[in-house]
Nucleic acid binder design. Structure first.
Length: 506
RNA sequence: GGUCCGUUCGUAUAGGGGUUAGUACGCAAGAUUUUCAUUCUUGUAACACGGGUUCGAUUCCCGUACGGACUACCA
């Protein structure tokens, strides 16, 4: 009997959620949906020293913006709560003690200073200090101390931690859904702290206990966790939970577009693309980071782009709605290697979604942006602009900038375009054009084009000779949509005004 | 340093014992257009290296190189 699929996204509220985190959440979400399972959000805030106010709320808002609906967890409720580990604090000690009693863990009284000294001593001999089977008998812990000494230390309130007793020289062959078999020898691993002297569990304890208690069926997380997989598996074994141990899948990392290393939050501001879904202000430094949302990305495009970073469905299909992703996603098709993030491709994805959006929807967004520049326009005009400009834009802000000339007459003319298209005969032709335009009624795109085309054709003048300088007069440069769409939107009065101004200028 | 993971055009990837190694982004050229763009066409460019196994390897195995992660009382 297959058990119900339950996966969790378990971030630490230590700052904004970056794209790597969003992708981990996304893959968990897709996997849950694909299998009719539950997607949980658990907040792993066991390290009070790293807690950042606002981070948890940011995470919830980000998932929401991305359209990843949480079935259960912080902010959503559920039968397995609380879902914030700080609120589950009391629970973990029992489990740590259980491991001590079964001989799989022990008390350690070494102070941070003592451990630091050990590390330094080892380093001097070009060695790495490891708290393991070789060293633990010489250190200050309940394995070395007598039962009485340990009890005495505990009673007197000496700070202690609980460490996992890593078995010696055991060959572990573990399964990863993405990587296949992964082998470890336990002798190379160390006795990780499970329970800290501040009374809080470490990630390892809290994570395993909660995954067990919350009946998680699949752990889908970043590759940075692969090295602690043996510890986690051994813990399940020590607890006697092997039968319900989740399956593991370690996702490849997202790397910087250029240079070495994984994508970090610094890259965003220095390389000119966002690394966060939403704008984030670091409460400690007041530093502000742009988000994909603020840069004009549609959440669907953002999600689509992230999904294709390290995954594909085996066909050439690249544009997927969230629904389609839910249906197509499988862990088997997740790439093993880390992927470099490509900001250009991200823009392309947004372009694809922009073009597909109804003009009425884009018009609303465009209206808002134009308003910020002090420009107001009726809905009909905005829609017309969107339909005319979106093909050449990646973002609504591109449409906004490209269409500004419709509302503001050009203040200067592009030198290189003028040089190329404003010829000796241009003034005479444009004067003639001016006279003819004055007569055009109605001033619609179709009719104006008909009249002007007839004139150009019959006079054997050549379209380029008229249209190019005409465009410069109206737009200020050699760009923009179909010229007669522009004249219609400008209206006769404004069109003539701009024509006259250009004639006066050159 | 140690452990683990990885390596197909610049990037994201498909593929897989015999292929003209496919696609997308980017870039370039051409066509179209009154401009820019769009669109269309074409081009550009890859199996990290060295050994095996094999009739044959880019594909399987082993090394090397390179990249990455981890190596905290952080997650």
């Amino acid at each position: 009997m297959e058990r119900k699929v339950r996966v969790r996204f378990a971030p630490s509220p230590t700052g904004a959620l970056h794209v790597g985190g969003v992708r981990t959440a996304l893959f968990n979400y897709l996997f849950a949906r694909r299998h009719g399972g539950d997607f949980l959000l658990r907040i792993e805030d066991t390290d009070q020293t790293r807690y950042v106010p606002g981070a948890e709320e940011y995470i919830i808002r980000s998932l929401k913006w991305c359209g990843l609906q949480v079935d259960e967890g912080v902010g959503s409720g559920g039968a397995f709560g609380p879902y914030r580990q700080s609120e589950r604090k009391a629970l973990y000690k029992t489990y740590a003690l259980q491991l001590v009693e079964s001989g799989n863990a022990y008390y350690a009284f070494d102070t941070p200073e003592e451990l630091e000294a050990c590390r330094n001593a080892c380093e001097e001999q070009k060695d790495t200090f490891t708290y393991n089977a070789l060293s633990r008998s010489k250190l200050n812990n309940s394995l070395r101390l007598s039962r009485e000494e340990t009890a005495q230390a505990l009673r007197s309130g000496v700070p202690y931690v609980i460490r996992f007793k890593m078995p010696e020289n055991e060959e572990l062959v573990l399964q990863d859904l993405i990587r296949g078999e992964v082998r470890f020898n336990t002798s190379l691993l160390d006795d990780k702290v499970l329970f800290k002297s501040d009374g809080m569990p470490t990630y390892h304890l809290a994570n395993v206990v909660d995954d067990y208690l919350m009946q998680i069926s699949h752990v889908i997380r970043g590759e940075e966790w692969l090295p602690s997989l043996p510890l986690h598996v051994l813990m399940y074994r020590s607890f006697g939970w092997e039968k319900v141990m989740p399956a593991f899948a370690h996702l490849p990392l997202i790397l910087k577009p250029v240079g070495n290393g994984k994508l970090s939050k610094r890259d965003g501001n220095s390389m000119g693309f966002p690394v966060f879904p939403l704008q984030w202000t670091d409460p400690a430094t007041n530093e502000v980071w742009h988000g994909y949302r603020e840069d004009g990305y549609f959440p669907e495009a953002f999600i689509n782009m992230l999904a294709l970073l390290g995954w594909n469905d085996g066909t050439d299909k690249e544009i997927f709605s969230l629904q389609e992703l839910c249906e197509a996603f499988t862990l088997e098709r997740v790439h093993k290697a880390g992927s470099r993030f490509d900001p250009e491709k991200a823009k392309w994805f947004n372009h694809k979604y922009l073009v597909e959006k109804p003009d009425s929807e884009l018009a609303l967004l465009l209206g808002r942006q134009l308003l910020e520049k002090g420009i107001q326009a009726p809905a009909g005009v905005l829609e017309r602009i969107c339909s005319l400009f979106k093909e050449r834009a990646n973002f609504v802000s591109d449409i906004c900038n490209d269409s500004l000339f419709l509302f503001r007459a050009p203040e200067h003319y592009e030198d290189k375009d003028v040089k190329k298209h404003w010829k000796e005969g241009s003034p005479a032709l444009l004067k003639e054009l001016y006279a003819r335009l004055e007569q055009v009624t109605p001033f619609t795109a179709a009719h104006t084009e008909e009249v002007i085309s007839a004139w150009i054709t019959s006079g054997e003048i050549g379209f380029g000779k008229v249209m190019n300088p005409f465009r410069i007069a109206l737009v200020g440069a050699s760009k923009g949509p179909h010229l007669f769409d522009i004249t219609e939107m400008l209206g006769k009065e404004e069109t003539l005004k701009r024509l006259k101004k250009a004639l006066d200028t050159f």
